[in-house]
Design a protein around this nucleic acid. Structure first.
Lengths: 287, 287
DNA sequence: AAATGAGGTCCATATCATGGACCTTGGGTG
DNA sequence: CACCCAAGGTCCATGATATGGACCTCATTT
């Protein structure tokens, strides 16, 4: 009876695989404590036996683990390892670390790297500044609808209008239900302002007094790659300081775009089979 | 027909999901340049249409990408993001970074974090030392059969004998084919020595003159969690220096085991639903 | 120009995932 | 203490769905 469902993509497919991976993404939403079976069932639209069967498959692969005490399902070690492996190609975090450290260093505020993930925004890293009053509204791994938060708004503002419409529509229920400060109308205003100013501003909408500025950067082909942002308390976010922070962000955005451009130019060192020991393995370098 | 196969686990299952995830792991083996379809077909035992269909499902989920130029399949951005999310729970790397930096700092040699992944060993991180002659035999993301390399050997040596037997048997073909220096007999000798000495030594077996020492650490429940290791050229690996390096490793292994024990004691902060904004978000700290 | 080999697709068939019904566990309550 | 309820987990007949042999297409190679 799977029949109706939500009429996914269109045609062809190993739909049980799609469903399993959908569950994986769902579980990824709750990296902290994991999800109990009922919520997975509710959140996915699948029924219990099916969800459980798929979860067992994910567990067999190590991508998911079931915490014995709570029976919650959460991401497994294999997911972590695969991520490290994928980082070889998608090393945004690694590329960005220097920028994040620099931003945190010169501004004394906390810097963030965020990327888009479907219609959400994920915080990939948080680099603490040294200023004694810090906002903890955004932790590594946190996810919010696109537009919620400075980095998130920057990502949204960098997208073409029809994507914006689609994404805002998709997020509308979540926004109304869980993000009172972020009615789509408000988001549209913020977004227009962000485009006009050249950087996104979150004037404490998520948590009062916790402000942020953000700016997106792109791959050489124009796709949005991610966003850098800075967060601080409102007293450190007067308009002049916003501009100052935006200048720092702009410099690092340029750095990121340069690095990304470099990654795609040279003939992408291709292949090099598993286990093959590659070449002159000892090299001398001057200290 | 699918029929015979290799008589997988035993019973129950969404076997197309299993197969898809098997492909994912296979692709993870080649994080650098990805794999062409033929090799995926060969490496998985599936046939072309099936493999392709499963790959399309993985691509739909963003876990795999197909490089347009070479048509190779490689890990996708979603795999990277999931990994960052999983790192919240499986933060071995994060926990280990301080140890790795310390090891590289005091020894001037390069330090590594490795974990077991099925019958292979994956290098999760490589922290460069300052000594001008460095070995590049092991890069982040590289995978070798358990026993090949110092950290890898340390992991193997930390396992019970029946696991060792099983794993060596499983790896025998790969060892004979691609790792001439590592016939299972030799590995068994190295392993016995490692257990006797309390640390694993790789006397340049993978790449001449590139030596390494490694030591495994465990979760509080006794499971092997990973291994720390150090690599240098042979001239910096005289027996006395081996002992000195082993002392440093031992100290960091103790640190890791203490941190891991701490992670499992306190009532594992449970749940905290998606999107929920948690608690006092601004905190003051003294600089 | 013909041959090779890789990537990719079709579609009838039989296998495998599906989900309603049911069992089990645990902890809250009258 | 026994009852109840909610959640976790499992069974199994049924038919929707994945399978893979055969085929097509496109670059290279000879």
């Amino acid at each position: 009876m799977a029949g109706s469902d939500e009429a996914r993509a269109g045609m062809s497919g190993s739909q049980s695989v799609d469903r399993a991976l959908q569950l994986l993404a769902l579980i990824g939403r709750e990296p902290a404590g994991g999800l109990p079976l009922v919520e997975i069932v509710a959140g996915s639209g699948l029924n219990k036996p099916t969800a459980r069967r798929l979860l067992l498959a994910l567990i067999r692969a190590g991508l998911v683990e079931q915490e014995p005490r709570t029976r919650h399902y959460c991401l497994g070690e294999e997911a972590f390892v695969l991520g490290v492996l994928a980082a070889r190609r998608h090393g945004l975090l690694e590329l960005a670390m220097e920028s994040l450290r620099h931003l945190a260093g010169v501004t004394m505020d906390t810097s963030f790297l965020s990327v888009r993930r479907d219609h959400y925004c994920v915080c990939l890293h948080r680099e603490e500044g040294t200023y004694p009053v810090r906002t903890h509204a955004l932790q590594m791994g946190d996810q919010h609808p696109l537009g919620v938060g400075a980095g998130s708004l920057a990502l949204l503002a960098a997208l073409p209008d029809d994507d914006v419409d689609r994404l805002l529509a998709a997020n509308e229920p979540a926004l109304r239900a869980r993000y009172q400060g972020f009615a789509p109308e408000i988001l549209r205003d913020d977004l227009a302002l962000a485009r006009q100013r050249g950087f996104a501003l979150n004037p404490g909408r998520l948590v009062a007094s916790s402000w942020g500025v953000g700016m997106a950067f792109r791959y050489p082909d124009g796709r949005v790659a991610g966003a850098l942002s800075l967060a601080a308390i409102d007293s450190r976010m007067a308009p002049e300081r916003q501009d100052e922070l935006a200048d720092h962000l702009r410099a690092e955005v340029m750095r990121m775009e340069r690095l990304l451009a470099d990654m795609f130019v040279p003939g992408r060192k291709v292949a090099d089979r598993a286990g093959r020991i590659t070449a002159p393995a000892i090299e001398a370098r001057r200290a």
